[in-house]
Design a binder for these strands. Sequence first.
DNA 1: GGACTGACCAACC
DNA 2: AGGTTGGCCAGTC
Length: 104
Amino acid sequence: MPDHDMNPSGFFDQVYDLVAQIPQGKVISYGQIARLLGRPRAARQVGWAMRRCPEGLPWQRVVMADGSITGGAFAARRRALLEMEGVPFTGDGKVNMAACRWIG
DNA sequence: GGACTGACCAACC
DNA sequence: AGGTTGGCCAGTC
């Protein structure tokens, strides 16, 4: 009814909802989120949704499939937050996805 | 109203 | 073994 209201069925809303459900000490990759939503190739849009940086969203737990961290100037800051949450890192400066990969 | 871009991933040669 | 391309949704010019 409100034509100026957003549709909750949008792909973005599903991404935000899923990221908000990631438990502390766990991480997930962009592609994994897209797959759980039924879009195995929409990893780009997940990153696009993160780029908008909605408040209250722990997007720090969202990393690349390789365990690397992105996010422009905030990448280094997110890595520190993950370490505080107990996420193990590799000697290469990446997240140990094999030990902390969250499965929905 | 159409085309391009964007914090990615995986298949293909 | 490494480089290139396609694909998806939404927002902007």
